[in-house]
């Protein structure tokens, strides 16, 4: 395990945080295990790839993917999920179905080849960090993860919408009984979570590349992050992402044949002692 691999772990953690933060917001407030979150990530990546390739602007790719996936999120929440609210199994099955549909549509439109979102020249090349030369783009990924964490923290703690979301995670029925239209909060949260999946898709699409089944891989990692961190907790998602990111690096380097076990073994052990995750609360 050297510094380069450690940095890789931290960088991967930053990407995981971006994706998992949206996942945990939706899980925490709406109580929906959105198994289409990975598909939204992949679709966001494809959107970003197409827009960035067409326009030549990586930034436009990010904005377009976030807006497109946010819109997709609104349609999913307002058009489908609202009809199965309160029915956990139906919600899960519905999101699995949506994931299948998105994947197949993506296969029809973009085919089965692997794509990499083109990044601007300024993010090419490497910077020296201590004794190692590290790709600039990966430093950008880390910075993006930190920025998303800070912005989300500000949103959740310094804005009324954020306070309402946190209150809703604690007790959605009471939020409604206090005169707040919880449906609107649900919609905003779903929009935000979906936009974060889209952002993750573009950033990850330039880092891990895009291909069919990339959604399932990121989804499994996100699930681990959220389960470790605890439902609805941003600090939990950050720590969970760091653990999973670093364990993934360790696993790949030191026990390549046991790479998944290195992540899910400790996760299972943690759950044995803290069934609700590090920061999880019972309802």
């Amino acid at each position: 395990m050297n510094l380069f691999q450690l940095l890789n772990g931290v960088t991967f953690a930053a990407l995981l945080f971006i994706v998992a933060s949206g996942f945990t917001l939706i899980f925490g407030l709406l109580r929906i295990v959105n198994l289409a979150h990975g598909a939204l990530y992949l679709l966001g990546g494809y959107f970003g790839y197409s827009i960035a390739s067409w326009s030549g602007s990586f930034a436009l790719g990010i904005v377009g993917a976030m807006a497109g996936i946010a819109l997709f999120g609104i349609l999913l929440e307002g058009g489908l999920l609202r009809f199965v609210r309160g029915h956990e199994l139906r919600q899960v099955l519905l999101t699995v179905g949506v994931a299948f549909v998105i994947n197949d549509m993506a296969l029809v439109i973009w085919g089965g080849d692997s794509f990499t979102v083109p990044v601007p020249d300024t993010l090419m090349g490497a910077v020296q960090i201590g004794p190692v030369f590290y790709p600039k783009y990966r430093v950008f990924v880390f910075g993006a993860g930190v920025a998303v964490f800070l912005l989300l923290w500000l949103l959740m703690n310094k804005t009324r919408l954020g306070v309402m979301i946190r209150a809703g995670v604690d007790d959605a029925e009471m939020v409604e009984a206090c005169g707040i239209n919880i449906r609107r909060i649900y919609l905003w949260t779903f929009l935000l979570g979906a936009a974060l999946a889209g952002l993750g898709g573009v950033i990850g699409g330039a880092y891990l590349s895009l291909y069919p089944t990339a959604d399932a891989e990121i989804l499994v990692f996100s699930l681990a992050v959220v389960i470790i961190g605890g439902r609805g907790s941003l600090p939990g998602a950050a720590i969970g992402a760091l653990m999973v990111g670093l364990l993934n690096s360790v696993g790949q380097v030191m026990f390549p044949e046991l790479a998944y076990f290195v992540i899910f073994g400790p996760m299972a052990a943690l759950l044995a002692f803290r069934p609700l995750g590090l920061f999880g609360k019972s309802v």
């Binding site: 939020v175 009984a177 206090c178 005169g179 239209n181």
Partner: peptide, 23 residues
């Protein structure tokens, strides 16, 4: 809906208080 009733100036102090524990 509850929020529509609340907006007509009816408030509730529910059984068990049900405060928002993280606020």
């Amino acid at each position: 809906k509850p929020h529509e009733i609340a907006s007509r100036r009816i408030a509730i102090v529910p059984q068990g208080r049900r405060l928002f524990s993280s606020l």
